[in-house]
Design a protein around this nucleic acid. Structure first.
Ligand SMILES: [Zn+2]
Ligand SMILES: [Zn+2]
Ligand SMILES: [Zn+2]
Ligand SMILES: [Zn+2]
Lengths: 132, 132
DNA sequence: TCAAATATGTTATATTATAACAAACGTTAT
DNA sequence: ATAACGTTTGTTATAATATAACATATTTGA
């Protein structure tokens, strides 16, 4: 049974770093940031990342091979994720839109496939970057 | 100006392999498949892949780091992609659903971001795998 | 308390992707 | 034709991302 709340030492360290970050973090950049805390090997990072993803604490931005903290509180199991990604500054924002989520969760493929999960990534230029 | 139709030698070789494949192909698997045709280096594959993606001839399945041929005919510029992915057999099917595409193309973020492009990946177990 | 499950540490290696540079090729304008 | 330009190719090297495998330690719960 998956422990819903308690995080192990390494999981907590990795989560802390991701939560403090302003944008998505890459695995090796996390690694470099925690070497002072005694974590030395990629495995340790990837193991923590896997568990945190499983718990819905973080999400992987597939198009960037990077990780962000979940801000949605209601996506404990991350089976319906949507992100807004700025192609200029790399900012990532988790989209929490009930209508969108319902629409996509109810979408079923003509070919008879029933979906369990989806991930949606929107790309554009964010407000901040547009001004420059 | 991007040549809309003519493919270079390597681009054609890579596209042929991807189109003949039943499922998504990985870059290095493409490479191993074309070494008999005189292509020896990853760069040659990745360059062709980049161009083919730019032309909308193929798409990258971000969650798998793999490539599929476009079957939609109408996505010359691939700015609105959606896929159905079986978590058991790895089958990938491009979803071509006008309503879905319109819904998502019209979706705009509360925070004032105007989207230029999206990629949606649905996951589940396909019909064929369910029978087993 | 003791077995099972989970987490850690560590070394090595696999997989995916890009950098950098030189040479060849295809177009088009003179 | 030929010079100039952009695109494609070939090639070597290396960077970045991710997993395998194995030994040990810690936590959990019957
Ligand atoms: Zn979330
Ligand atoms: Zn931006
Ligand atoms: Zn397509
Ligand atoms: Zn299947």
């Amino acid at each position: 049974m998956a422990r819903a709340q308690t995080l192990s030492r390494n999981q907590q360290i990795v989560l802390d770093i991701i939560e403090k970050a302003k944008g998505p973090l890459k695995a090796y950049s996390i690694l470099f940031n925690v070497q002072k805390k005694g974590i030395n090997a990629p495995q340790q990072i990837y193991r923590a990342l896997d568990k945190l993803i499983g718990m819905g604490k973080i999400h992987k931005i597939e198009s960037k091979n990077a990780f962000v903290a979940c801000r949605s509180s209601d996506c404990e199991i991350s089976k319906a994720t949507a992100f807004s990604i700025c192609e200029s500054c790399e900012m990532v924002d988790e989209i929490s839109d009930t209508k969108l989520s319902k629409y996509l969760s109810g979408f079923n493929h003509k070919k008879g496939m029933k979906f369990k999960r989806f991930n949606l990534e929107f790309f554009g230029i964010c407000k901040k970057c547009k001004k420059d």
